[in-house]
Design a protein around this nucleic acid. Structure first.
Lengths: 231, 231
DNA sequence: ACTCTTCTTTGCTTAAGCGCAAATAACAGA
DNA sequence: TCTGTTATTTGCGCTTAAGCAAAGAAGAGT
């Protein structure tokens, strides 16, 4: 497959990049394809590349020593990920990147990115925007995990994921994620997720299927997220 | 009180700043003093200033709608805080900054910082280093909260705080924080914190006092943090 | 030295949700 | 269409730690 450099303007960080920079990036980078469930990199690997996702979906996960994992973020097309490694010269990835479906991504050498940052203000700004967004989101999620009960956290998680990677189909938003993914993203378990989603389905808020969730009544979810006690 | 511009080199982000920039910063900024328990700013205020803490200690807290709060970070002397607001022109503070003790900080206009970033690579780099550090820490803490039991999380929290704001006195590290603070930093409650610390004190790992914790046996804490089940 | 306030401790109760086990359902590939 | 695999559901028991209440301890200020 070939990448059209101009497409890279869809990447948030590269919104303001001149075409010659996009050409440079495509030329100097490698396109990696990764099959479902395989990894772009593992937690602890030297952070040699930053990536731009070209097709498919990827999740960033972090594991504890016992192997339990949490989903920190789900990446969709034309999102940049693993860019933080480019900041510190000898960094290792603090997370692993696993493909949720067959996918491909442009692998950019961290050193190239670092070099480009020296002379391109738009790149610095773009990366900082990305980072501040991450920080704020993580701070919120941390607070939610510390202070909110599971049901509300689940609603918040699903709403957040819907805005980040939701797919609109015939007026409804669909979330192509398994309950396992939801559990790992919300800091809960598949059992509790299943029970809660079933309950919501009965109430007509959502519709569930194997590996997907369709939002029937987003407003109802917002109400749960914001604190209406369930009857 | 007067600030000696040269002192600002102790600020991580400004390690490589030339003296003229430090002069500029001091000249264009205001020194704000804030008494114990008062706030530099509240969550949701327009992010008009970034700060450099000159004396005292400050905590960054985030509250949920019900008013429960979590401690996201404790700031010590010569640390920069609230710098993220400088990135996005119309940002509001996502956290509140409350003084843990009488303190003073240099208030730098966000717009000034933003201007300076245009032409000073060291500033961009310094801020990015700061941000990547935040992101990694928040990701870790999020994972800990999602996957670890309270005792281990408490050990991890205390070790982390010790490295960030611990005070060395006669060979031992002291943490000048109340149990309330620890609870809010670890995502637990004062009751559980009290019980756990008492237990640790019995085992000789720490020494507690009103508003402070002295680490007697850091290695023992590391063992708990890394997973040795308590006997 | 005394008082008031704030922080810490501890017993007790309880709710939330984890997690095993086993059944059922959905889908993929041949 | 059949079969094997993977995802979801549900009953049930159990653990963890939250949270109330009340007592005790440590400081701060006068």
């Amino acid at each position: 497959m070939k990448i059209n450099p101009a497409d890279l303007n869809q990447v948030n960080v590269l919104k303001e990049a001149p075409l010659e920079d996009l050409n440079l990036l495509v030329e100097k980078s490698i396109l990696r394809s990764v099959e479902e469930d395989s990894f772009y990199f593992f937690q602890g690997d030297p952070a040699k590349y930053a990536y731009i996702l070209v097709t498919g979906r990827v999740k960033l996960v972090q594991s504890n020593p016992a192997g339990q994992q949490v989903n920190l973020r789900t990446i969709k097309q034309w999102e940049m990920f693993a860019a933080l490694g480019a900041i510190r010269p000898d960094a290792t990835y603090p997370v692993a990147a696993q493909a949720l479906e067959p996918s491909s991504a442009l692998a950019i050498e961290s050193s190239l990115l670092r070099e480009m940052m020296q002379t391109r203000p738009y790149l610095n700004f773009g990366l900082m925007q990305l980072m501040t967004g991450y920080i704020q989101e993580m701070q919120e999620r941390y607070r939610e995990l510390a202070t909110e009960k599971v049901e509300r956290r689940l609603a918040l998680t699903i709403l957040r994921l819907a805005s980040q990677i939701g797919i609109k189909s015939q007026g409804q938003i669909e979330l192509p994620l398994s309950q396992q993914d939801i559990a790992e993203a919300s800091g809960s378990t598949i059992y509790t997720v299943s029970r809660t989603l079933s309950e919501w389905e009965k109430r007509g808020l959502i519709e569930t299927g194997r590996g997907r969730i369709v939002m029937r009544n987003p407003h109802g979810l917002v109400e749960i997220a914001e604190g209406a006690e369930s009857a």
